[in-house]
């Protein structure tokens, strides 16, 4: 029981972090047709900026988190201005976007090393503190992250469902040409996508850093594959699908190590579990969890 509660908790934490990052990737892909290979490094950079201000400079954590969010939003908007916008205007193909994004990812990772120097980082939180729950010992950091991440996800869900710009973004992601003739301002949507992606990436990176305890410049990179798997699992280009995909994968990955299930799969195989899940779901439902079968009219 204790192990089950612990793993369930881990799964919820991992799931909500994956879900946040996956929504960012899904929106960026849906609206810009950009497979953002740098998504993981956006997360890492966010985590590093927050650590820099809160630990190295000794500023309050909340302020440091805000600065990290602003930094990642600005990075997204700036890259769009100098890079993606030009590629779009020159009608670059998906592969060109993908390769450029890979280049951006590599540059970002090295830039993080150059600016912040190598070595691992940690937030000034007590990583040993735990509290008991149904016989399990849950790390306080995990609880805090779970609370913050779930409130971020609820806020995000409400934003996407209720606000005009949220609906416009989902509409654009669903069908760009119809969105344009319906009078949705493309440039405005693009700006908001980078802002929301910035908020989500920075928070997901910071949360992951807090849960991990120590992290280095490869943190986001190692999460990239499960994030992409979550996007595909939940139906590509569907923001709610990405949320669901992230939660499902997080839970499945953590629960797979439960010793009751065949003695538990070794935890280093978690990414394999993620992709096995993806493969199985797609075999049964090729359009993804929330997808509707394309129908001929």
């Amino acid at each position: 029981m204790a192990e089950f509660v612990q793993l369930l908790f881990n799964g919820l934490v991992t799931g909500s972090i994956l879900a946040m990052a996956a929504v960012g990737v899904s929106l960026v892909y849906g609206v810009l047709k950009l497979v953002n290979f740098a998504a993981g490094d956006f997360m890492t950079l966010g985590a590093f900026i927050a650590v820099f201000f809160s630990v190295s400079k000794g500023w309050p954590l909340i302020l440091s988190v805000l600065l990290a969010i602003i930094g990642i939003c600005a990075l997204g908007l700036a890259l769009d201005m100098v890079l993606w916008k030009r590629l779009r205007e020159n009608k670059a193909g998906t592969l060109a976007f993908f390769l450029v994004a890979t280049g951006v990812a590599l540059i970002l990772r090295q830039a993080i090393l150059m600016i912040f120097s190598s070595g691992s980082r940690k937030y000034a939180i007590d990583e040993i503190a735990t509290f008991p729950l149904f016989g399990a010992n849950i790390a306080t950091a995990q609880l805090i992250v779970l609370l913050l991440a779930s409130s971020s996800i609820i806020t995000l869900g409400l934003f996407m469902a209720k606000t005009t710009i949220g609906k416009d973004m989902r509409a654009f992601s669903d069908n760009p040409s119809l969105a344009a003739v319906s009078g949705i301002n493309v440039n405005r949507v693009v700006r908001y996508v980078w802002i929301i992606n910035g908020v989500l990436s920075a928070l997901a990176g910071i949360f992951q850093g807090m849960v991990q305890g120590r992290f280095d410049s490869t943190m986001g990179w190692t999460l990239l594959l499960p994030i992409f798997a979550a996007v595909v699992l939940g139906t590509i280009g569907d923001a709610y699908g990405a949320l669901l995909g992230g939660m499902v994968l997080g839970l499945v990955m953590e629960m797979s190590t439960w010793s009751v299930l065949f003695g538990g799969i070794p935890s280093s195989y978690k990414p394999v579990v993620a992709f096995a899940t993806l493969g199985l779901v797609l075999l049964v439902k090729p359009e993804g969890l929330l997808g509707v079968k394309a129908r001929s009219i």
């Binding site: 119809l178 003739v181 301002n185 280009g237 569907d238």
Partner: peptide, 23 residues
């Protein structure tokens, strides 16, 4: 601009893919 046509009073229904299926 095409995205301003709806604002000036011109509405367009394309032949296919004319609804947002995920909304």
């Amino acid at each position: 601009k095409p995205h301003n046509l709806a604002d000036i009073g011109i509405a367009y229904v394309p032949q296919i893919e004319n609804i947002f299926t995920t909304l």
